[in-house]
Design a binder for these strands. Structure first.
Length: 324
DNA sequence: TGCCATGTGTAAGGGTTGGT
DNA sequence: ACCAACCCTTACACATGGCA
């Protein structure tokens, strides 16, 4: 998740990405008025102001500072005074439930920031003060443990003993998302996108084509195609590369390129992928950008590198002179 | 005007660190 | 072992500026 560090350094505007959408964190989705009830905030594990782990780097310090400011003002992650960083069991369960209830929104919205602000707000209504960032972070960590347990990579032999396993299972295994609106499973937030939810893509606007794509568009690492997601599944990228390189000759000719991208878009459409000419062009530019970047920087790129999966395709095409 | 390169902001995945 | 917090990296969409 987080490129939090980076995001912070630049936008620091608040751990909360929602900033973009208009307001959260500092300004974004201002946390609602403090809940009537005083937060339980019993979790005090780090007396007297939880010292940041380890020697903070400059960036860290900066972050820490901002974070403190933030915490002090609106989100107050540490309740009444101090260091209460640890999440209570009930608190975590509440978080999971809220996230579960909002699953639909998480899947449909490309911007999660405001949604985490909403989660934070709902949590506050229950008396737990946690910033949107903390909610997001906590959920991601819970998800990591859940996934680890599920994969049997947990420390214990009985991986499924993770205390919140059941809660998470309810959310991801199909039973949960229910409350959120029908489609179970998928999950949308960050972590959930990682889960196998190929069959749950009934986007409100879901067209037959989307369904088709959902079936064929399984990207290796990111699961199925999600209409709500802008991400290009690997097969789709490969299709684009194939189409684009097949008419490279036309691109070499002078003249407007727009029609060519329209042609590619149509070709994509024939293959079951719905992408506008503009998107195709944009994606093409991006993958080439990454390709060049990767090629320039990583002379030591491992053959089986998982990143930039189309590296070899592009590399081969450039070598052959198909592209140029 | 269209293309291209570059910058920015955000999302997401994986991993690490240090305290409990 | 669990957990909170953080770091790093990749990927994407969108905006912008330079250039032919």
């Amino acid at each position: 998740m987080q490129q939090l560090g980076l995001a912070r350094s630049s936008g620091d505007q608040e751990p909360d990405p929602g900033g973009v959408a208009g307001g959260d964190g500092n300004s974004v989705a201002p946390p609602p008025p403090p809940p009537p009830a005083a937060p339980p905030k019993i979790n005090v594990s780090q007396p007297g102001g939880a010292a940041p782990p380890g020697p903070p780097s400059l960036a860290q310090q900066d972050h820490q500072q901002k974070f403190d400011e933030e915490g002090g003002v609106d989100d107050g992650d540490r309740g009444g005074g101090g260091g209460g960083q640890r999440w209570l069991k009930e608190e975590t369960s509440a978080l999971i439930k809220i996230r579960n209830d909002m699953d639909r929104s998480f899947r449909d919205s490309p911007l999660k920031g405001p949604l985490w602000a909403e989660v934070s707000r709902k949590l506050a209504e229950l008396g737990y003060q946690r910033s949107s960032k903390k909610c997001k972070e906590k959920f991601e960590n819970v998800y990591k443990y859940y996934k680890k347990s599920k994969d049997g990579r947990a420390g214990r032999q009985d991986g499924k003993s993770y205390r919140f396993f059941a809660d998470m299972e309810a959310l991801f295994s199909g039973g949960g998302g229910g409350a959120a609106g029908g489609t179970a499973g998928g999950g949308g937030g960050s972590p959930s996108s990682n889960i196998d939810h190929h069959h749950h893509h009934h986007h409100p606007d879901g067209t037959a084509q989307h369904e088709l794509v959902a079936v064929r568009g399984e990207s290796g690492q990111h699961g199925g195609f999600d209409p709500a997601s802008k991400r290009w599944p690997k097969p789709e990228v490969l299709a684009l590369i194939k189409l684009r390189s097949s008419i490279e000759g036309k691109f070499q000719e002078t003249g407007p390129k727009g029609p060519l991208w329209e042609e590619i878009s149509s070709g994509m459409s024939c293959m079951g992928y719905s992408r506008s000419a503009k998107r195709c062009k944009e994606k093409w530019e991006n993958i080439n950008k990454y390709f060049r970047k990767t090629k320039d920087s990583s002379k030591k790129r491992p053959e089986n590198s998982k990143t930039c999966p189309y590296f070899h395709q592009l590399d081969a095409l450039y070598r052959k002179g198909v592209l140029g």
